[in-house]
């Protein structure tokens, strides 16, 4: 059952240089219990989409139902049922403390003091924050700050949580740690997760399904595996003991080859699914009596996918 349904969701901004179409009539469905990743470079419209679905921005056009409530006519009910964790903000003001902030947030969500306190008991240990309830927010480490931000969005037990670039600026260890926490939100608390990211590894590891956005449009919608399979196929490199050209016809009979190049003792074979093709390929090499020196299957990365879909590499955007 889908917990988010959006149709023709559009946002245009008026700027000094003219009208910018940040999100162009996108359709979107998210099933309950899914972890969906919105992937795309900066300016693709990921955050704008998220901000519309969380009632922060009013859409210019389109309709949506979020967690069973109408986004436009019943936005208060939407707010009651969702959690929203924005991109990391600037350093917190002095005088704010972890548990107090969480309770204040919960009470604005309509929880009683005692319900909020009970929720803290459950939530904080899950996010490894149980030991620092009295700490000033300004003294939290980057990872602690993000886990605190996530806790803020989860105090009122939302059905869906929206995370906007949750691991930006964290070191690799804290990122991996946060991924575990995000996965456990779904596995242990049954929360649906919508996450935006421009990190390929994050999208790959975390999301059940990816929506690739570019220039305000969803250009692809599938699992990470399917996207990779669909776009560019895998490359199997076989190294033989002798001139590889003689093995070409045997290889072509054994597997469905998209393209094949011979380079001395090596053959590069592009196939749709490397994991499926490798077994018949090996058998064919064996049956024809070639000596095998090595074999390597390279799966395409999401970067290849992005390159294929948009003609640009996401990595370059990261560097720029």
């Amino acid at each position: 059952m889908s917990t988010i349904t959006a149709r023709g969701l559009t946002k245009t901004f008026r700027t000094k240089t003219g009208v910018v179409e940040a999100v162009k009539a996108i359709d979107l469905d998210v099933a309950a219990g899914e972890i969906v990743g919105l992937l795309g470079p900066n300016g693709a419209g990921k955050t704008t989409t998220l901000r519309m679905l969380t009632t922060v921005l009013a859409p210019t056009a389109g309709t949506a139902t979020v967690a069973g409530a109408d986004l436009l006519s019943d936005s208060r009910e939407v707010r009651r049922r969702i959690g929203y964790v924005a991109q990391i903000g600037s350093a917190p003001s002095p005088g704010t403390r972890l548990a107090e902030e969480l309770v204040a947030q919960a009470r604005l969500q309509g929880m009683t003091k005692s319900a909020a306190a009970a929720r803290l008991e459950v939530l904080l240990p899950k996010l490894d924050l149980g030991a620092i309830t009295g700490r000033a927010l300004s003294e939290l480490s980057g990872g602690q700050r993000r886990r605190f931000d996530i806790a803020l969005g989860l105090m009122h037990e939302p059905q869906i949580v929206f995370l906007d670039e949750p691991t930006t600026g964290l070191d690799p260890q804290s990122r991996a740690n946060l991924w575990d926490h995000i996965r456990s939100l779904r596995d242990e608390l049954g929360v649906t997760v919508v996450i935006t990211t421009h990190y390929l590894d994050e999208a790959d590891v975390l999301a059940d399904r990816l929506l690739v956005m570019d220039h305000g449009v969803i250009v692809a919608n599938d699992t990470s595996e399917a996207l990779k399979a669909r776009v560019s196929g895998d490359v199997i490199t076989v190294e033989l003991g002798a001139d590889a050209a003689r093995a070409e016809s045997a290889i072509r009979t054994a597997v469905d080859v998209r393209s094949l190049t011979v380079e001395g003792n090596r053959v590069h074979v592009t196939v749709e699914r490397g994991d499926i093709a490798v077994a018949p390929l090996l058998r064919a090499i064996d049956a024809n009596g070639f000596a095998l020196a090595s074999i390597n299957v390279a799966r395409p990365t999401l970067d290849d996918v992005f390159l294929d879909l948009t003609g640009r590499s996401l990595r370059e955007e990261d560097v720029a």
Partner: peptide, 17 residues
């Protein structure tokens, strides 16, 4: 303005308050 930058205003707005 500081609270806007910290994200406090936005997270309070995403409540039914």
């Amino acid at each position: 303005i500081q609270e806007l930058r910290e994200g406090v205003v936005e997270r309070q707005r995403v409540t039914p308050a």
